[in-house]
Simulated scan of single mutants.
Amino acid sequence: MTDAAQAHRSAPALARTPEELACLRRSLEGRVALVPTMGALHGGHRALMAAAREQADTIVASVFVNPLQFGPGEDYESYPRDLDTDMRVCAEEGAALVFAPSVEDVYPGEQIVRIDPGDMGRVLEGEFRPGFFGGVLTVVNKLFNLVQPDVAVFGQKDAQQLALVRRMVRDLNMAVDIAAAPTMRDSDNLASSSRNAYLSPAERRSALSLSRALLAGADASVTGPVGILSAARAVLDEAAAGEPPVTVDYLALVDANTFAEVPNDFRGEAVLLVAARVGRTRLIDNVPLSL
């Protein structure tokens, strides 16, 4: 990264339409990194932009709450939106350009053609949120086409999404590198998320069982898949009986490349994942493991 890019801390340019984006994109110099976000930026997003600074000369952040990835009854309407604060965060993290389009600009008509995530996108999050990954990959594809980045940075916290984006880029011969940033955690070890703001103090205490379960599973990694899942499940079973209770959607140990659940004799790179609800808030977390 150039010294000029590292020193850049002025207010980023703001593009609200694809036409404004195209005009401003032509002025960006060097290697360009895209950090796709849905806004409500927190420490995890700062970590993504820090990783982007290591990958490129110029950072473009997108701020767009994508309706295609929200199912019926999910929190699309109430999802936190604060562009002024997001712009300040982007300035502090050295972004040169923020793309914050309207829904009408991203989807000017009915979106008939969508990216199919295949079987890999229909398990785990894909099973509990039908259509979610199709919506994610479709908007990521659009952002790649609009921004034309050299590299895009995604968080390891959304491990299945990261794996699917990498697969889409490979399968569709997209000319963009995909970089991953480690999961950012709050001081109490809860994975940073915009949805953490929905948790009451009591719910947050219960939610800490997710990271404790993953840590217990990681500590048991020498015992193999059965021991890993047993250790993690014991923590979650206790949390399910707590107050407020934690309701688990899934706990799974999967192959890091295919997201298929691993056999008992598995050796290689894996991911231990959990998704659960505390009150009305749904949270996900994971930890990479090498078996």
Rank of each mutant, 00 (worst) to 15 (best):
S206T: 09
N173S: 15
M184K: 05
R204D: 03
S194D: 10
V248P: 03
N257W: 06
T17Y: 03
Q156V: 13
L146F: 15
G134R: 04
R205Y: 09
T17L: 03
P245R: 14
A191S: 12
S221C: 14
Y250M: 04
A276Y: 12
G268D: 13
G43S: 11
R280E: 15
E20Q: 15
T37F: 00
A234E: 15
F99M: 03
M49G: 11
E93Q: 15
F99R: 02
Y107I: 08
Q111E: 13
L172K: 09
M174Q: 12
L143T: 11
S102Q: 12
G134P: 06
T138S: 01
G44A: 04
S194M: 09
A179W: 01
E269F: 02
F144M: 09
L24C: 00
R129T: 12
S102L: 05
V153H: 07
D171R: 12
D171V: 09
D82L: 04
G242W: 08
A56S: 03
A276S: 08
V226H: 08
A240I: 08
V287C: 08
V123R: 15
P108W: 10
D105M: 03
A159M: 07
S221G: 04
P67C: 05
V103D: 07
S193H: 08
A234N: 12
Q6E: 14
D119M: 13
N286K: 01
L289T: 04
C23W: 07
A191R: 10
T258F: 03
P149Y: 02
L273A: 15
V106D: 00
G279S: 05
M120E: 14
V274P: 03
H42K: 04
G73M: 07
D84W: 01
L34E: 01
T281S: 14
N141K: 14
V123S: 15
L143W: 08
R233A: 15
R205W: 09
H8Q: 14
T58C: 06
V235I: 15
D105T: 00
A270V: 07
D116R: 09
V89R: 09
R26M: 05
G71F: 06
R26G: 03
A275T: 09
P36Y: 07
S209Y: 06
T183K: 08
R122C: 13
A152V: 06
Q161M: 03
D3N: 11
D3Y: 08
D188G: 06
F128L: 05
V106Q: 05
V139A: 12
V113N: 13
I112M: 13
A4H: 10
A220R: 12
L291Y: 06
E93S: 14
G30S: 06
R25N: 01
M184D: 12
A179V: 06
G131F: 05
A239Q: 09
Q161S: 04
L34P: 07
D188S: 11
F154H: 11
R46W: 01
F128K: 06
R205C: 13
A51S: 12
V98A: 11
D255T: 11
R212N: 09
